[in-house]
Amino acid sequence: MLEERIAELIQADVDGELGPEQRAEVTRALEQSEEARVFHSEMLRVARHLTDAPDKEPPWGLRRKIIDSIELPSMGGFANNWFRPAGYGLAMAAGVVLALGVVSIAPMKSNDFGSLVGTMVNKGQAVAGKPEAGLTIEQPEINGQVWLKNLDEAWVVEFDLASDESVEVVIDLDSAGMSFGGFAGQADYSGDENLEVSGGEVRVVNQGSRHFVLFLRSIPGAEIKPQKIEVAMNRKGELIFQGTLQSRG
């Protein structure tokens, strides 16, 4: 039977909680006792399995939902009760507004993606489909996420971004073999004012917390699946972020 003190020391050793003297004591115990060695190896194995288990990715939009549900005092303002979280009701409402926002804007001009937007309404989801690729942006000027998603019959690039000042987001669709099919954003975020399409390049201006979607259509004769979409972000003409949405397979 392994001495209780030695068992405790072995546990602490596995957790990296021992000083040099105690570690030397564990080393001695391991040299002298087969039972200690077996116990040590078992505990290490269990600890390794637990530590090696991969992190789970928080769901898309959770961070934005949390941020949007918390009210801060206005800049420079102060009060005893600094924070006024909006609570569950408003948090839920934020999610609903987000969902409604996406569907409240018609797709751009000549592109007929109306049926797709309708599908999203019926599903009651702003963001449908499995992410094929994603980018996380963590720059001082802008942060958020970009996802390439496959909706049943179409591809979309979805943006959830936050920037204090105006940041230009440039999406190169040429290398993806796709062309621009439509834009959907929050109710107060119009494609007419914030979007420019030129050849295979789409430029969107982001300022504040914005959630928007670009619908893609395949170019005749090209691959149906977008292979690679380049995303760049510029602040005052200076490149601040560059990334590639690379689809699997």
Partner: peptide
Amino acid sequence: KRGDRKALG
């Protein structure tokens, strides 16, 4: 506490 939403983010 000063209302900086970027810090909140």
